[in-house]
């Protein structure tokens, strides 16, 4: 007689029976490694933050210098993501729909911001837009300063965020059905009408996702920004830099507070992306 407990256990096995070996080893290693490298350190941050309490976090966020840095970070990240949204759509459209000399090379270069180390991007952008740079010198003649101002942060964040929009939208553009365009034209729509009313709406979820990814990345970006920003407190100081500054002053609580706020924001954005994709899966049948 098999004991009922054993039967119960067998019925509720964690993983379905399989001839493939190694589940215990690989699954166990995955959990331990993930736990030690990622989850435990992040939990330590949350534990530190819970020590501060909501009022403590609010007090840190309300410090004028912190509040200014958070505002600068979010506002400029948002603006940069908007610029990336607009130009990213054009770039994705051109690379997917048209054929011209150098298209594939240009397509490969879109990933440059992913591959180029941020510190290198930072110093080269600072050199380009600095007072003696290719772009900085001519602009200086018109009294326009980019480097060491907020505009510099915007330029760096546009650079960092662009591939997120292009790479999210590109596959959806290539999947657009020609039949829909033909049907739209047969029904008497002009080309612009077809593009605006038939082709762009299915791109909306991908555009929103690309925008959110670019925004989330920009909020946390550090290396490419600090060289070109000038880092003037209250003006062009970003939140990640302020974490570094607080740590250098041994203000671990302050650094933790800012980090917690940033983490909360990026997880909300992540959640938003998942919601958009779930909605898009229902509405358009793709993500």
């Amino acid at each position: 007689m098999t004991s009922p407990i054993l039967v119960g256990k067998g019925a509720r096995r964690f993983t379905a029976p399989s001839v493939i070996p190694g589940f215990g080893l690989t699954f166990g290693y995955t959990l331990i490694y993930l736990g030690l490298i990622v989850l435990f350190p992040l939990a330590t941050l949350v534990w530190w933050a819970s020590g501060l309490g909501l009022s403590g976090l609010y007090a840190i966020a309300a410090e004028p210098r912190v509040a200014a840095a958070l505002r600068t970070t979010f506002f400029i990240s948002f603006a940069a993501a908007i610029v990336d949204l607009f130009f990213g759509l054009i770039v994705a459209w051109v690379l997917t729909r048209y054929d011209f000399i150098g298209r594939r090379l240009l397509d490969a270069f879109v990933d440059l911001p992913f591959a180029l180390p941020t510190a290198v991007a930072g110093i080269s952008l600072a050199a380009l837009y600095g007072p003696n740079g290719w772009f900085g010198a001519p602009l200086a003649d018109y009294d326009i300063k980019i480097a060491f101002t907020r505009w510099g942060i915007l330029v760096a964040l546009i650079f960092i965020g662009l591939p997120f929009v292009v790479r999210t939208v590109q596959p959806i553009i290539s999947e657009l059905e020609v039949e829909l365009e033909e049907a739209s034209a047969t029904l008497g729509a002009g080309r612009l009408q077809t593009v605006l009313h038939v082709m762009l709406p299915p791109l909306a979820p991908a555009l929103l996702t690309g925008f959110a990814l670019a925004f989330a990345r920009s909020v946390g970006e550090y290396g490419s920004v600090i060289f070109i920003a000038g880092n003037i407190a209250y003006v062009s100081e970003i939140a990640p830099l302020l974490i570094v500054v607080k740590l250098e002053q041994y203000d671990v609580a302050g650094a933790t507070g800012i980090a917690t706020i940033m983490l909360a924001i990026s997880f909300s954005v992540l959640l938003l992306i998942n919601l958009v994709q779930a909605w898009s899966g229902r509405r358009f049948g793709h993500v």
Binding site: L45, T118, L247, V252, A259, L270
Partner: peptide
């Protein structure tokens, strides 16, 4: 880890 700012990634190890 892709959604965590690099600076925060460094900070969590300082906290540990």
């Amino acid at each position: 880890p892709f959604s965590v700012s690099p600076v925060v990634a460094g900070l969590v190890y300082v906290l540990v």
